[in-house]
Deep mutational scan, measured.
Amino acid sequence: NQESVVAAVLIPINTALTVGMMTTRVVSPTGAPAEDIPRLISMQVNQVVPMGTTLMPDMVKGYAP
Protein backbone atom coordinates (compact mmCIF):
# COMPACT_ATOMS: atom_id res chain seq x y z
CA ASN A 1 0.00 0.00 0.00
CA GLN A 2 1.28 3.41 -0.95
CA GLU A 3 1.63 6.06 1.72
CA SER A 4 0.10 9.48 1.18
CA VAL A 5 1.02 12.85 2.65
CA VAL A 6 -1.14 13.80 5.65
CA ALA A 7 -1.15 17.11 7.57
CA ALA A 8 0.73 16.67 10.87
CA VAL A 9 -0.63 20.02 12.12
CA LEU A 10 -3.35 22.51 11.17
CA ILE A 11 -2.04 24.23 8.03
CA PRO A 12 -3.53 27.71 7.45
CA ILE A 13 -4.51 28.86 3.95
CA ASN A 14 -1.62 30.25 1.83
CA THR A 15 0.98 28.67 4.14
CA ALA A 16 4.20 27.39 2.56
CA LEU A 17 4.64 23.73 3.49
CA THR A 18 7.57 22.62 5.63
CA VAL A 19 8.71 19.09 6.38
CA GLY A 20 7.39 19.40 9.95
CA MET A 21 3.84 20.05 8.72
CA MET A 22 3.64 16.74 6.86
CA THR A 23 3.55 13.09 7.85
CA THR A 24 2.67 9.96 5.88
CA ARG A 25 -0.01 7.32 6.26
CA VAL A 26 -1.74 4.66 4.19
CA VAL A 27 -5.15 6.23 3.53
CA SER A 28 -8.08 5.83 1.18
CA PRO A 29 -8.57 7.64 -1.06
CA THR A 30 -4.88 8.22 -1.67
CA GLY A 31 -3.53 11.75 -1.77
CA ALA A 32 -0.19 13.22 -2.76
CA PRO A 33 2.36 10.35 -2.63
CA ALA A 34 4.83 10.31 0.27
CA GLU A 35 7.83 10.38 -2.10
CA ASP A 36 6.71 13.84 -3.28
CA ILE A 37 7.37 15.47 0.13
CA PRO A 38 10.67 17.01 -1.12
CA ARG A 39 8.74 18.61 -4.03
CA LEU A 40 5.95 19.83 -1.75
CA ILE A 41 8.27 21.74 0.61
CA SER A 42 7.83 25.52 0.10
CA MET A 43 4.65 25.07 -1.99
CA GLN A 44 1.57 26.85 -0.64
CA VAL A 45 -1.77 25.33 0.26
CA ASN A 46 -4.85 27.01 -1.24
CA GLN A 47 -7.17 26.13 1.65
CA VAL A 48 -7.10 25.37 5.37
CA VAL A 49 -5.86 21.80 5.88
CA PRO A 50 -6.92 20.40 9.29
CA MET A 51 -4.53 18.14 11.17
CA GLY A 52 -4.90 14.53 10.01
CA THR A 53 -6.29 15.51 6.60
CA THR A 54 -4.89 13.79 3.52
CA LEU A 55 -3.13 16.31 1.29
CA MET A 56 -4.85 16.07 -2.09
CA PRO A 57 -3.07 17.44 -5.19
CA ASP A 58 -5.72 20.15 -5.70
CA MET A 59 -5.00 21.58 -2.23
CA VAL A 60 -1.46 22.67 -3.22
CA LYS A 61 -0.83 25.59 -5.58
CA GLY A 62 1.16 24.60 -8.66
CA TYR A 63 1.47 20.92 -7.72
CA ALA A 64 0.70 18.10 -10.12
CA PRO A 65 1.58 14.52 -9.16
Rank of each mutant, 00 (worst) to 15 (best):
N1G: 14
N1S: 14
Q2V: 14
Q2D: 12
E3V: 11
E3F: 11
V5D: 01
A7T: 05
A7F: 08
A7Y: 07
A8G: 03
A8H: 06
A8E: 01
A8L: 09
V9P: 00
L10D: 15
L10I: 06
P12D: 10
P12T: 09
P12Y: 09
I13E: 14
I13D: 10
N14W: 15
N14C: 11
A16F: 14
A16I: 15
L17R: 06
L17F: 06
L17W: 01
L17V: 06
L17D: 06
T18E: 13
T18N: 06
V19L: 15
V19D: 09
M21K: 03
M21G: 08
M22I: 09
T23S: 11
T23P: 08
T23G: 08
T24H: 10
T24V: 11
T24I: 10
R25H: 08
R25L: 09
V26M: 13
V27D: 06
P29H: 00
T30G: 11
G31H: 05
G31S: 05
A32H: 04
A32W: 12
P33L: 09
A34E: 03
E35S: 15
D36L: 06
I37L: 11
I37E: 02
P38H: 12
R39L: 11
R39P: 04
R39K: 13
L40A: 02
L40T: 01
L40E: 02
L40K: 01
M43I: 07
M43N: 04
M43H: 11
Q44C: 12
V45E: 01
N46M: 09
N46H: 06
N46W: 08
N46D: 05
V48E: 15
V48W: 13
V48Q: 13
M51Q: 15
G52C: 09
T53L: 02
T53P: 03
T53A: 15
T54Q: 02
T54P: 04
L55D: 02
L55I: 14
M56T: 08
M56Y: 06
P57K: 05
P57W: 15
D58I: 08
M59K: 01
V60S: 05
V60I: 15
G62S: 05
G62R: 00
G62D: 12
A64N: 14
A64K: 15
P65M: 10
